[in-house]
Design a protein around this nucleic acid. Sequence first.
DNA 1: AATAATAGAGCAAGCGTTTTCTCAATTTAA
DNA 2: TTAAATTGAGAAAACGCTTGCTCTATTATT
Lengths: 340, 340
Amino acid sequence: MVTLKDVALKAGVSPSTVSRVVSGNGRVGQKCREHVQAVIKQMNYRPNTHARALACNRVEMIGLITPNVSTPFNGSIAIGVEEAAIELDYKTLITNTFRSPEAAINAIESFREQGCENIIIHTHSIDDVTLVKLAKEIKGLVVVNRFIAPIAQRCVWIDNVYGGRIAAEYLIAQGHKKLTIITDDKTARDPKDRILGIKQAVEDAGLHIPEERILFGINSIGNIEHGRKLARQLIEEKRDFTAVLAYNDMMAIGAINEFQDMGYKVPEDISVIGFDDLFICEVSRPHLSTIHYPIVEVAKFATQLSLALTNGDEGVIGKANMFMPSLVERSSVKNIKNNK
Amino acid sequence: MVTLKDVALKAGVSPSTVSRVVSGNGRVGQKCREHVQAVIKQMNYRPNTHARALACNRVEMIGLITPNVSTPFNGSIAIGVEEAAIELDYKTLITNTFRSPEAAINAIESFREQGCENIIIHTHSIDDVTLVKLAKEIKGLVVVNRFIAPIAQRCVWIDNVYGGRIAAEYLIAQGHKKLTIITDDKTARDPKDRILGIKQAVEDAGLHIPEERILFGINSIGNIEHGRKLARQLIEEKRDFTAVLAYNDMMAIGAINEFQDMGYKVPEDISVIGFDDLFICEVSRPHLSTIHYPIVEVAKFATQLSLALTNGDEGVIGKANMFMPSLVERSSVKNIKNNK
DNA sequence: AATAATAGAGCAAGCGTTTTCTCAATTTAA
DNA sequence: TTAAATTGAGAAAACGCTTGCTCTATTATT
């Protein structure tokens, strides 16, 4: 392994000089710098991460904390983070919490102890006040896919109200009057926001969604199984509706499958719209119309923000951290304007 | 931040002793050990990763190199790795190569430079000889989802021949006589092995697959689009078949979608079987019958193997590194025994 | 031309561990 | 009972890098 000292020796300068050339801190003469750079290249020197981390108590690493990378949504977050990390030659350290708040806190601690202040966290299991406190302490902590008012500038999220609204508007434009919602935890912010948006659109159209047509989950995780379950409930309890707005694509697809298994046709009998725009939308039959969530972009921006925060680069700081979702039309919603 | 020295001071012993207590190396008296442990607990001391890494030139980290974590297959690998890592309190560092061999080599270099010898690599873009060479140099390198004879004990893979065989046997048992194969790169080992297994089953049944019913990809990545493309080709060129064996689930689902878009019914007109058993199998219509690939288990075992290799723990070394796939029956294959 | 300011580069301490040598104290063997 | 072996614990060097301090050489100021 070639060390800084080796380079210094060969270049005929002191280690400090080499260090300054590598890091770009401190003054080095033009000629000297070029010479050292040449030697570095020639010897293929690469600085030792740990020595550097130890000496300056920070590390060029960004830590991602996510419930489970193997799900498409979180996998996309990971990609966004890595894309941004690569650009600055940072490494990506991933910890899966499997929804355990202790695991998440532990991961944060562990990152900090390693001198890693750049932490991107995607969690719903740590409460707002804890996160606010942590954000105060950790310069580079940014929260992704979640809005927490006191630390809004440290969050990157999408406009869920708007997302809900455009989904509902689309359904209404297709002639649907009796909408139903299958969603996630009643107390969670995202479901609430999306419902809010839906209600706005519905009211603007002079319609109304009775509470009984909004089905929540309890401690659910918005997955396929959950979608199936609520869809079954919808049918069994004979709720009156022509279209369902699912909290996300997973639930939507679960619901579609359940409807189909029960003998209903989608979209002929029931229209369904999802949220997120995961790759499975193109796979399901019918292809799922949904609200596009720019996940990779959000994660990428979050990472850039974190880096800017710790490195004092003001470039992205202050930019709006809210992204806008958008409608993507496929085949799971039927236009029933003329036949009903 | 509380350091080893702080603990030593408070405990009234030398730093060396504390170090020995923490690491478990070297002799420490029973009484002394307990006292130090108590102080450690009381002060909530946690060793500094970087200092440790620097001092002993190794690090408790396992590096995963994968084309792209956001795909379900690779996401599952990540989970398997992390599961094994957590058990030994190792961290997981992930690098996505996006199929670039340079990125993969770079990642390996980078891991090594950081003193990380535990590398799990999933790649098809680095050739055998390079990998063999690397494996010789890096004690903890293990290759996942790939078999390379000279370093078989450093690979963890599944029996693709067997997988191909049971898929074909199942189709044949369902009365299919005209099978067709849509697969990946002709030169790649996995496709070849699966085809081999298929041919074995076919021949055992006294049947035959003409070469024109085996469609390969060129530089393809076995994804949905690729499946669609070959399915289209199958139809357009009017090949004669009743069932298709896809290289993997993604391709199978692409094919199903294409068939359906072209007006064919699956499985009524065409039966399809996949490979991998990703979650999307439960999502597609019809649900995809497939060959189960125990991905998480494979990745977990690979990680344990890597750790055993570097830590001299002989537990898992020598165990068979080949896993067996298994059939999972869903609804994409029709029994045509009695009506044809 | 004399003085002040600044640029360039080296020295050495320090980051938090591990680990090799010591050496004293204790145990074991003869 | 004595010599030999073993155990327990400390001192100090090393890991590779950063950075505050220092000193000389150069440039700018008057």
